[in-house]
Nucleic acid binder design. Structure first.
Lengths: 154, 154, 154, 154
DNA sequence: TTTT
DNA sequence: TTTT
């Protein structure tokens, strides 16, 4: 029952370790800062220009736990989510707006670094929460066994 | 030579007529405010919730001109671009950040309303041969009348 | 636990009414043929060229029911799904491969036509019975109640 | 002037080295076979299922040359292009259809392997700026030396 | 500020 | 035919 599409697709590297917290509901939230960059050659000078863009990403639920467990500063990830601009208040009481990419059960995150454990694509779920509490400790998890038996058309 | 993907895909409605300006370079810039909305049923109350998200879009060049010529308040559009957060200064001299979706020659915009002239032709490309046919010059045609006797493989 | 991204995003018009069936499991499957087109000006002749591409889409579950209820020949839709190439056998016993865009609970479909609800379809023509289910008559659904006073940043 | 969106976004691994050819026009074409996979846990048996999908990709022009120079069997890549189903004829004179993802100047390809490196990042900070700086000319053979020491605000 |  |  929604009209409209709101989608962001990013591939970039984390500027710092994820900031993981647990909501009162028990759900995890992970905030990460992701850098994407593009470069081009200046037409007049001929020099190569590079520009880096920083994105604020907020992951919720299962994907937040995975982020907390496996991502770290420098990690390269694929992220798919939706844009959300939220209002917040500075310490001085001033209102500010920040735009983030929200990755919940409808979105997805995938690690693109060498070795990594990802996540099964879970079905739809409603919405992301808000209030935040404390961080949680990352835990090392074993690699899951994989099976296969594909039909290969080509 | 860029590493990273920075992509936003939106379908929504304009909250107001486009604000079109001309840069010193002569290029056009169109700013639009786009609403996307999503809705879901609250699990506890069972009531239908709707949430609207507003996006700032900045179109450049040819696509900005098209926006200025054909879009208006209420128009539904598809927009593909990249995220960019830029710093600006308030009248009081305070710094602020705003995130926008930039639609330039690498991005695209398409009108989804009834009648319409859509997107500018894509950049140079070495296309492979294909079943091709001529089409009439556009210029405000009535309805897309999307039925044809194209060769349908299935 | 998946590595890789497999995503297709299409906006186009249906070449025919959806073909809706019910699986033994009771789940619905809707097959639609979707046309997307692109056009460009030939560099040498200067004439406008248009090319139409036809896509086979298979929708599953809830979205298949919606397709059956509201889509018809000519409908414009947004579709997001994954590519799948499947093997099938011709009446003569020859193997063939067909690539489709699969839209399941992880994908999405959205109608882009003005009014979602179309007029009742014409009476069915005499045809041999099959595991085919007629698309249900469009039922007028209640307008989603507007709630929420979204915080509007701009 | 095109109406419709036809987009495919894939991240996967090459099943074999690229097949690169030169068209009569002098343009390069590279064909690659890309595997994406998804996995899930079977609800009844509880076992982990994995399914691999193979995609045929045809790259044209500059991106085809890059593919030929740097990609090889096993390479992980991001690919964005459009779907195209083309007719061809078997040695026995039978018609067949094959769907491919076409990556031309409007599409894009990015290598996700090896040294697509991250760098030592500076300490975190509150707000997202956006620096622009020069980067060195890329060299043309060995490895795409995709690395930089971006200034990271977080 | 949009739209359904 | 890839990868984890």
């Amino acid at each position: 029952m929604s009209h409209g599409i709101n989608k962001a697709i990013l591939i970039g590297n984390l500027g710092a370790d994820p900031d993981v917290r647990t909501l009162p509901s028990g759900d995890a939230v992970a905030n990460i800062s992701l850098a994407t960059s593009e470069s081009w050659t200046d037409r007049s000078t001929g020099e190569l220009i590079e520009r880096t863009e920083w994105h604020r990403i907020a992951l919720f639920g299962k994907v937040a736990e995975i982020a907390g467990d496996y991502l770290h500063k420098g990690s390269r990830v694929y992220v798919e989510g939706k844009l959300r601009t939220r209002k917040w208040t500075t310490a001085e009481g001033h209102e500010r707006y920040t735009t983030e990419v929200i990755v919940d059960a409808r979105g997805s995150m995938q690690m693109l670094d060498g070795r990594a454990v990802q996540e099964p694509a879970p079905p739809p779920k409603p919405e992301p929460p808000k209030p935040v509490r404390k961080a949680r400790k990352p835990k090392a998890r074993p690699e899951p066994a994989m099976t296969e038996d594909d039909d290969i058309p080509f």
